[in-house]
Design a protein around this nucleic acid. Structure first.
Length: 428
RNA sequence: GGGGAGAUUCCCGAGCGGUCAAAGGGGGCAGACUGUAAAUCUGUUGGCUUACGCCUUCGAAGGUUCAAAUCCUUCUCUCCCCA
């Protein structure tokens, strides 16, 4: 017996629904084909995209069939919903390349085996469209008056909305129509900013085919501290490990505000709600355990268990007082020869990913935030010298290092490892 | 097509021809406090340099001037009002 509506509701996914009773009944009655769209406007999905992905996974587990629609066609237009400015146009080639990356990421959440799910690209049916025909068949069903009344356009009416973006809603509605006809898909899921677009699709289906379709949107996930979800100083947290390392990904979740742990466990993991309750019963520092589970679970889903373990071990090694592996930390290589001569701490820090320039390195050191192997470096004049053994007479302002590698630290949380390569096998 | 406003550093936003690497806010980074939390307070926030200092940056290109983010010309783009 399928279902799934209650799961989504209980876990806090649902924001708006065209008709809760109808959708629940639909999902309870039997396998339902539903769809969610993803815009390939970037080379990777980010944290925000995981909300619909988890929702789709829950529904799939409940026995339904998800369609993951990659918007290769619509991405050429640009969705104005909820945005204040027009996004810059990107080339079709880039969109197609992005689409391929995104497909792989979606596949980590949804099982595409044996007709259990479908992956489509709307470029396939949007690109051959004939303008005149499209206007006659589809465009005539849209009222500009009504479209302008949509909340999604309000913001843009203030700052300007180009005609091309204004058309986005028509294309997305058309997608829904196509999917309803070809795949019997009458339920569309999406972020709450998609509400207007989804509802328009429902209406189009009703007008053209006289059939009922349903809409379900997810609450926009926010952080209690007001920071943008999935954003850090470095930019978005991506699912692509080349853009956001599994270690940084893991750390993002570890550092989440206390108040969000329960919410995130419900949305971004598959742990049963009862267990989530148990985990988050603790207060204060006790919540760190729950955060660790949250981070580990999500990292496992996105990057696989092996990567998650590496990230966790690295974190434990750094913050938990030893016992873990150092893998997963950014690494810089440098020859022992060079190090034996002695190098300035400023120079070395600027070579790691921790600092972008020497000025920045100098600031960091002067500010007291720099550490080499747990030795604080507060003087920008400090030299670092590689030795085979610690000399008895030490130079002033010098730090001696030995062995294979050394850990550089900026502040409390940012680490980099410098590996010393001996000159005779420095072939790399 | 006519008229008006504007383009400044990561973002917003100030900026009498020199004292402007450019106010203020946001954000970021770092320090203190902590639990790898939040809040708060403090410092810092173009690059190179030990430093005097040098270099690049105020939409683009020219010009005036000893001196331009500031003045002039042309260009590009954006927004607003009217048709």
């Amino acid at each position: 017996m399928p279902g799934g509506f209650d799961v989504l509701k209980e876990r806090g996914f649902i924001k708006q629904c065209s008709d809760e009773a109808v959708v629940k009944k639909l999902l309870d009655a039997g396998p339902v084909t539903f769809y969610t769209g993803f815009d390939p406007t970037g080379p990777s999905l980010h944290v925000g995209h995981m909300v619909p992905l988890f929702a789709m996974a829950h529904l799939q587990r409940a026995g339904h069939r998800p369609i993951a629609l990659v918007g290769g066609g619509t991405a050429c237009i640009g969705d104005p919903s909820g945005k204040t400015e027009m996004r810059k146009m990107i080339s079709v080639e880039e969109i197609m390349r992005n689409a391929e990356f995104i497909k792989k990421q979606i596949a980590r959440f949804i099982d595409f085996g044996a007709d259990k799910a479908i992956m489509l690209n709307n470029y396939d049916w949007l690109s051959p469209l004939n303008y005149i025909e499209f206007l006659r068949d589809i465009g005539k069903h849209f009222s500009v008056n009504r479209m302008l009344s949509f909340e999604t356009y309000k913001m843009r009416l203030e700052t300007g909305l180009s005609f091309i973006e204004f058309n986005y809603q028509l294309l997305q509605s058309y997608d829904f129509l196509v999917l309803s006809r070809q795949y019997g898909c009458f339920l569309q899921l999406g972020g709450d900013d998609q509400w207007g677009n989804i509802v328009s699709g429902m209406e189009l289906i009703r007008r053209v085919d006289g059939k009922d379709a349903q809409a379900l949107t997810f609450a926009l996930i926010t952080r209690s501290d007001g920071k943008k979800m999935g954003k850090t100083e470095k930019g978005s947290i991506f699912l692509n490990p080349d853009l956001t390392s599994p270690y940084d990904f893991y750390q993002y979740w570890i550092n989440i505000p206390d108040a969000d742990v329960e919410k995130f466990l419900l949305i971004f993991t598959f742990l049963p709600p009862a267990e989530v309750k148990k985990l988050t019963a603790a207060e204060g520092a006790g919540l760190n355990k729950a955060k660790e589970i949250l981070a580990f679970e999500i990292t496992t889903t996105v990057h696989g268990e092996a990567e998650a373990e590496k990230a966790r071990d690295a974190a434990k090694a750094l913050f938990g007082g030893g016992g873990g592996e150092l893998a997963g930390m950014p690494t810089v290589k440098i020859s022992q020869e060079e190090m034996k001569k002695g190098s300035s701490a400023v120079e070395l820090f600027s070579r790691t990913p921790l600092c972008n320039s020497k000025s920045e390195a100098r600031r960091l050191i002067s500010g007291g935030g720099a550490t080499i192997n747990d030795t604080s470096v507060a003087n920008p004049e400090t030299k670092v010298i590689y030795v085979d053994q610690i000399p008895t007479e030490k130079e002033d302002n010098a730090i001696y290092v030995m062995g294979d590698s050394v850990i550089f630290r900026a502040g409390k949380k940012r680490y980099a490892r410098m590996i010393f390569i001996s000159s005779d096998n420095s072939s790399e």
